[in-house]
């Protein structure tokens, strides 16, 4: 009986790993401002894509947010920061993004995890007019807005399915 339980547990391990990487639905408790503020100009990114310290850096420099002034009133800023930090990615899995250059906010496309996941994507795709950079998740992950990143949902610019 114990052996059977162990076997079941071992078999389900890789499945769990896949499910976790594909399923990026927003954790419960997102303040309405998270969608209406962050989600207005870009996808309301899953909090687990940056570690807590990097989210704090992002939220401390909103007046210079990748060239935009995205500053918020302090109560709104605080409630969004608490949600991001409370649901942040695990440092050992993700790695820090760190500032790319002095004064710049950490990019969630700069973590070791993100780079590993996308190492097969040619830079030409990132520069494509329909993509405009690696932070435009929904350009290829067609269900990104719903938090689903399954490989079979990926459509590259030009219409090719990733799996084909």
């Amino acid at each position: 009986m114990n052996a059977l339980r162990l076997l079941t547990a071992l078999l389900s391990l890789p499945l769990l790993g896949v499910a976790q990487a594909d399923d990026m639905r927003l954790p419960a408790g997102a303040p309405p401002a998270f969608q209406s503020e962050c989600g207005a100009c870009h996808l309301a990114f899953p909090p687990r894509l940056l570690v807590a310290e990097d989210w704090r850096r992002v939220m401390a420099g909103l007046d210079q947010h990748f060239g935009d002034n995205a500053s918020l009133d302090e109560p709104t800023r605080r409630v969004i920061e608490a949600y991001l930090v409370g649901n942040a990615g695990k440092p050992n899995k993700l790695g820090p993004a760190g500032p790319a250059s002095p004064g710049e906010a950490p990019r969630l496309t700069a973590t070791a995890w993100f780079k590993r996941k996308h190492h097969e994507v040619s830079p030409a795709y990132w520069r494509h007019a329909d993509v405009r950079g690696p932070a435009n998740c929904a350009a290829c992950h067609k269900q990104a807005a719903a938090g689903s990143y399954r490989e079979r949902e990926i459509v590259m610019p030009g219409g090719r399915r990733w799996q084909d």
């Binding site: 100009c41 870009h42 996808l43 990748f66 060239g67 405009r132 950079g133 932070a135 435009n136 929904a138």
Partner: peptide
């Protein structure tokens, strides 16, 4: 489409 992020 947002000219920087590409978001619709």
């Amino acid at each position: 489409s947002h000219v920087v992020t590409g978001k619709a």
